[in-house]
Design a protein around this nucleic acid. Structure first.
Lengths: 195, 195, 195, 195
DNA sequence: AATGAATGAGAGTTCATTCAT
DNA sequence: TATGAATGAACTCTCATTCAT
């Protein structure tokens, strides 16, 4: 068990306070720059209280990564709900992803740090998306929406592109014109670079 | 000054030993998992000797990142030297990049860690590439090799894609068929996904 | 007051549960290795409940030591009840003591830990026995059952011997042939080592 | 490795200072009552310096126990060097043991604590003595100095007796007349309690 | 140029005890 | 009577850095 569930409303509030404080502090200073005392101070509780709800610093971190995973998945599925075809869905998905990067820069940061701090959680996060992506692209090929090709390689390529663009035109520059970014990228992806 | 230039050959050897040990140790355990004492032990020197050559832990790290930058630039320019046109150059560049990720996984790791540890160095690394990339793509447009479009967005998209593919099909899986990866990706990029 | 007397049967059950859990946990991991939370968890109660029945960790511990004292005294007096003379009583007493060490190893451990944790309780425990022992030996001298000699020194010597043999041939090795141990030791004590 | 050897005289002095401070502090307040900071303060060094020479609190402790083992063995062998026969050697050995308990009460305490803190070290300590004792008693039987009997049981019995007497008439009461104690005990052991 | 020793701030974590309900 | 939550001091240990030789 990496954390013990609170039994009372009060406990639930405290646990939530810790999670939000951890998001803020770890997202802001990075994992190893964030001290437990910083988190508990930000949460307005005593240091020892932290360990009632989480077994370790790593445990909150992992919880945050998982939370971010759930949040991203939910956001993407909501965003792509009304797409008329699969390519349209991809476009909307990228758009939503950039939006998340812009509006929750701290959580975005946390996921990226997981690459080193909690590699399995990081893998789980991206492998999950890659699988969904791959299935999607395969279906699109079957439907005739896109040309045949290795769906897995394409999936990782598209994810990598999304991650970096999210960092560039979302997290680090929330003012960027993300619609234009999406338009440009999909122009390239759909029609290709060839004249 | 983050490091003082050594004068004697002996000094140069020691400094090199530190750098190689740092690459190994930091690349292996991550920046904050690597202690100076681990590095000096791996280098076969006393702890105090480290500080004769580098001002701080961060200093070696930055040096490694810069080294990696030089190395990558050199590799890419060598790899793309014989390209017949700019799109061919891009293809060869991606191919070389994946190769670097596969053959120097530790340095690759180090660059990725720089995102948090030395953001400026990280930025410098990628912004440098992005600029070159952007210029390249602009020239290709002028030459008529590729269609018109926002070169900067394309550049970041292509870099993001390269970074993730490098991690996936290079660093983490050195056995992967990288030629096929490159072929697939360029098929998508050149001709587009549309049927 | 180190503990408050419980009134209701429910309270008595809870207090007993705490004592049995404390015996198990402290006996198993040692005094300072045993956390209150371990004890309450083993007792199936909330942490706070502990302090309704005992003032502190030391208080349960002392209670256990005293309980062990009562238990040992009762066991010994029952065991020696039918002895035909005082030397016979000593023999039966040692036999019973080894049996206690073998069958209640945890409580045995607790008494030994008291040496450091609750020196007064430990002293009380052994000084009590030593006094009884001393009286016994004095009486035996008066009766002519044993030769004259300093009863107190003999008492401590016999007790020390019993404690170590209890540890060796009882607590740590419950399979040992304790009858033989007693026979050997009393052969030595009664007839002496001289040929 | 539980400790790293100092390379310079200065280091040797520091390590010694730590050992003496640890003897004093742990011997005085018990293992778990002794904080590293107490030890380093007593040694006049910084807290971190401790960990240059010992891997952990347990490591110093074990070193002290072993030191005590060596010291006791040496003392006993010196004390019994001039004995005219084996029984005489035993008597001199007990005498020396009580003396150690009286003059190095702290180290004596440490050995007793090892029972819980470092059971293997404790076992090694006593099992070592028990073996020697057993061999000695077997030889005495062969020589005809003492009557036949189970040497191992006798050895543990005698050791237990020595330990408790050491505690009683040495460590806790350095003023006791230890010659008389030894005389009494050997009178009992040699001639037996029977009239 | 190089060494091994020393530093001390600060980290994560534990835990006996108290509190509000 | 009982609970789960909260406290905060104290603990062991780590480590980048400095120092004396």
């Amino acid at each position: 068990m990496t954390e013990s569930a609170p039994l009372t409303p009060r406990g639930r509030r405290t646990r939530d306070a810790i999670l939000r404080a951890a998001e803020e502090v770890i997202g802001g200073r990075g994992y190893s720059g964030a001290a437990i005392v910083d988190i508990t101070r930000a949460a307005g509780i005593a240091q020892g209280t932290f360990y009632i709800y989480f077994d370790s610093k790593e445990a909150v971190f992992r919880t945050l990564v998982e939370e971010m995973g759930r949040f991203t998945r939910r956001s993407l599925s909501e965003a792509t709900a009304g797409a008329k075809d699969r390519l349209e869905a991809e476009r909307l998905g990228l758009r939503a992803f950039l939006e998340i990067a812009a509006t929750r820069p701290l959580l975005y940061n946390i996921v990226e740090e997981a690459r080193f701090v909690a590699p399995e959680a990081y893998d789980a996060y991206f492998t999950g998306f890659a699988r969904a992506y791959t299935r999607n692209l395969e279906a699109a090929v079957r439907e005739g929406t896109i040309r045949a090709g290795d769906a897995e390689i394409r999936a990782w390529a598209l994810m990598g592109l999304a991650v970096t663009l999210g960092e560039r035109y979302g997290q680090r520059n929330p003012e960027a014109d993300r619609d234009r970014v999406v338009a440009e990228v999909f122009d390239m992806l759909e029609r290709g670079l060839r004249p």
